[in-house]
Amino acid sequence: MTTITLHHTLPRVFEQRTDIHSDVWLQDVTFERGHLYLIQAASGTGKSSLCSYLTGYRHDYRGDICFDGHNISTLQTADWTALRQRSLSHVFQELRLFPELTAWENVQIKNQLTSHKTEGDMVAWFKALGIADKRDVKLARMSFGQQQRVAIIRALCQPFDFLLADEPVSHLDHENCRIVGDIILEEARRQGAAVIVTSIGHHIDWPYDKCFEL
């Protein structure tokens, strides 16, 4: 997949509003593979909704969203499964990890599906992000910041053309934010993929190709 295009897209919940001044909603916007995008937004402007639409989890919008020119409203469950395994990776704002499993198992559950990374790669990321000692700890016993780093490692355990990172560093300190930025960027460059980061203020310091106000 090389492009994601939005044509006059608007969440249905905003349909009654007349004060929409957004770089994304009701505009023609194109995201291209290999670029870095930042979408800045205040709370309640539909940032997570946008991510849900792009990952096929929600369809409550008006207008069109196209992947490589194909309207995503025509995609079937099997198409979405294939996209989520090979083209679209997502760091969810609410993380969507499994508290019953350990940090390592949370990452494994994804890598077993894609067989994308070696154990060594994953161990190295755990070390770099300072959670190597939490590897076998149940996720429920980790802080939100630690869980956020596990979610980022999990999102990198697959091939992707686009990585959607919904407030990926909201609970990380400056140093961890820098390390996360380096790891994601390195992986995205290696795959020639695009990264779309959303933020409500605190964000990774990257040379973004384009910034949008939502």
Partner: peptide
């Protein structure tokens, strides 16, 4: 919720 999360990270139904 677990099933939805599995599907969202790429597991097929």
């Amino acid at each position: 919720e677990k099933l939805q999360n599995l599907i969202l990270i790429g597991y097929s139904p």
